[in-house]
């Protein structure tokens, strides 16, 4: 187990290093870092001073060393627009994004699992057909357009829910979240639905496949022979077996939802890191863009690492298979 965790950890570090190199190449080698990292309205003297302080006159490998050294110390440059460290800007907005993502994930599970169960337990019926076609529709809907339609229907036409912003943030046990106020919840619902719809389809399909693959197995027949009720078989025994692939995929999808939050936050003007990224790209605020990329990739690699370790706890075949 320890060996597996250590090996997996080293792999994560390696991936992170590769990403850092790619981002470094993207900023320093392909583009002109002076142009990217110095505000466009800087004077020649300021420019020369920044070039010297960033060490842009030094050889490339030395610059890379400085870049990594600074990054390890949490220094990812200063935003041109806000004139504050870009990492602070990101950390300030991270809670809003995490809140949106986690709430969206819960929605995906609450809606997706029951539908997947219904579909899997009644294969090849009209209900199954409707749910499965609906799930294809779900992942064919371009997420940004779907969000606009939600705004059009529920905000512009019906006027039920607000279309932009985060609303009031409440506090419970020291945690700040919009989940604790009615206004906050109202603001959260549409963005969360927008973000989750794609994942609902995925959860439906995974659950359905899981049910259909598990139901014909011997242990189910045995449970029936033992006289267990069908409900107990489905919700206790079969469900447990479906959970394993579901947990892995959910973990991985959390990362993809963090990335997709960029779209949702742009449409609903949700003040998270995704909106910050797009705003920064538009304003040519490159230090923030670089910082966002490094933070989101680190986060993503961390999630993957945790999922893999959890998975190996649930299913020992994974770590044994990898060792051999």
């Amino acid at each position: 187990m320890t060996v597996f965790v250590i090996r997996r950890f080293l792999q994560s570090i390696a991936v992170l290093a590769v990403t850092a190199i790619i981002v470094f190449i993207g900023v320093y080698a392909i583009g002109d870092p002076a142009e990217m990292l110095i505000a466009p309205d800087a004077s020649a003297a300021e420019r020369a001073q920044v070039v010297a302080s960033l060490g842009l006159d030094k050889p490339l490998w030395e610059q890379f060393g400085t870049f990594i050294w600074n990054a390890l110390h949490g220094d990812l440059g200063r935003s041109f627009v806000f004139n504050r460290p870009s990492i602070t800007l990101i950390l300030e907005r991270l809670p809003a994004t995490l809140e949106l993502t986690l709430f969206g994930l819960c929605l995906a599970l609450i809606i997706g699992i029951p539908l997947g169960l219904i579909s899997g337990l009644n294969p090849n019926t009209a209900t199954d057909e409707v749910i499965m076609t609906g799930s294809i529709l779900g992942f064919s809907l371009p997420s940004f357009w779907q969000g606009m339609m939600l705004i059009m229907i529920f905000s512009v036409w019906l006027g039920w829910l607000p279309s932009t912003g985060r609303g009031q943030v409440g506090e419970l046990l020291g945690i700040h979240s919009s989940l604790f106020t009615l206004d906050g919840l109202k603001h959260l619902i549409l963005p969360a639905i927008n973000l989750s719809l794609f994942k609902v389809s995925l959860v439906i399909r995974l659950t359905r496949t899981g049910v259909r693959e598990t139901m014909p197995l011997d242990f189910v027949k045995f449970a029936r022979a033992k006289g267990l009720s069908e409900n107990r078989i489905v919700f206790v025994h079969v469900f447990k077996n479906i959970l394993i692939p579901l947990i892995t995929v959910i973990g991985l999808e959390l990362g993809s939802m963090l990335a997709f939050a960029v779209v949702t936050e742009t449409i609903f003007a949700w003040p998270g890191i995704g909106k910050l990224l797009i705003d920064s790209i538009m304003r040519l605020d490159r230090p923030v863009v670089v910082a966002y990329l490094l933070v989101i990739v680190s986060l993503f690699i961390f999630i993957n690492f945790v999922v893999d370790v959890l998975y190996s706890l649930v299913d020992p075949r994974v770590r044994i298979g990898e060792a051999s």
Partner: peptide, 15 residues
């Protein structure tokens, strides 16, 4: 291992 949209975002944000 990386979501499609994340890689595309990274690339186009830089390029």
């Amino acid at each position: 291992g990386f979501p499609t949209i994340l890689v595309a975002l990274m690339l186009l944000a830089l390029l």
